[in-house]
């Protein structure tokens, strides 16, 4: 992973801390194990003579291990807490939307997981599928929900993984530090098309973001109008084809 948000930076550090702790453990155990194998191999007239540990040895070992565990626990809490602490929108980020100032409030986006795609709802009524567009250096509060099964929203470079569970409201707060495209994929088995249930996050400048959601809004509006036009035209055609007399029978049919 290459972290591109303050939170994932902390997560990455914690992963490396965990890795070095794991490395110490693995090296110590396997050195001891294979060292003992080499030194105490039987044959060549070697006989076993049992060794006795000094009294208190077990307590010293247990104490050392407890110290090690405690250090990891404290580091775990510190870095997890850091990853959670809300990174505020900077001056370079989105400070106003639709002419209203955000005043340090996060930009709220709703993500809905469904078999097998993600839908994103933006504040002005715009929405998009598959691809999330967010402004750079802006605090994003993402509300997650699921309409069917458990999904996990995961864009490793930008934010922690969070489950979208039906009937539960979950959220994740993050801030992207760089513009670009980031790859994401659902991370809980959700049925047949789980593997292609991917998503991308495009991080853009605040100006481009505002243009984008306006475009989306216009596009959606145009689409809806076009759909309405087609619908009314269809109705008119039907009326013309069936003639005025059929109107009564239709209404009768409906009432029945």
């Amino acid at each position: 992973m290459t972290p591109h948000s303050p939170g994932t930076g902390q997560i990455n550090t914690l992963i490396w801390i965990g890795f070095f702790a794991a490395l110490i453990v693995v090296v110590a155990i396997n050195l001891g194990l294979f060292g003992a194998l080499r030194r105490f191999r039987g044959g060549r007239g070697r006989t076993a003579h049992a060794v006795q540990g000094k009294p208190g040895l077990q307590f010293r070992v247990a104490g050392t291990l407890a110290g090690f565990a405690l250090v990891l626990f404290v580091l775990g809490i510190i870095f997890t807490g850091n990853a959670l602490s809300t990174p505020k929108t900077t001056a370079a980020g989105l400070t106003s939307l639709n002419g209203e100032k955000l005043e340090g409030e996060p930009l709220v986006i709703k993500a809905t997981g469904q078999q097998w795609l993600w839908r994103y709802n933006y504040p002005n009524g715009a929405f998009s599928y598959w691809k999330l567009v967010i402004p750079v250096d802006t605090e994003i509060e993402m509300k997650l929900e699921s309409t069917d099964v458990v999904h996990t929203w995961s864009v490793p470079d930008l934010a922690p993984k969070v489950d979208a569970v039906p009937g539960k409201d979950t959220q994740v707060i993050f801030r992207a530090d760089a513009e670009g495209e980031f790859y994401g994929q659902s991370a809980t088995l959700s049925g047949q098309a789980y593997a292609p249930m991917r998503t991308t996050v495009e991080v853009v400048s605040p100006q481009r973001f505002e243009e984008f959601i306006k475009e989306q809004q216009r596009g959606i509006k145009a689409g809806q109008e076009a759909a309405e036009r087609i619908e009314t035209q269809k109705l008119k055609e039907e009326e013309a084809a069936e003639g005025g007399s059929s109107e009564e029978s239709t209404s009768e049919g409906e009432s029945e």
Binding site: T8, I15, V25, F79, P160
Partner: peptide
């Protein structure tokens, strides 16, 4: 030893937010 050392890394809450289900 390899497996449990890895599990130890996964048990750190923040680290698991990336590593879990990978």
């Amino acid at each position: 030893s390899l497996g449990l050392a890895g599990e130890m890394q996964q048990s750190l809450v923040g680290a698991a937010w990336y590593l879990k289900n990978t």
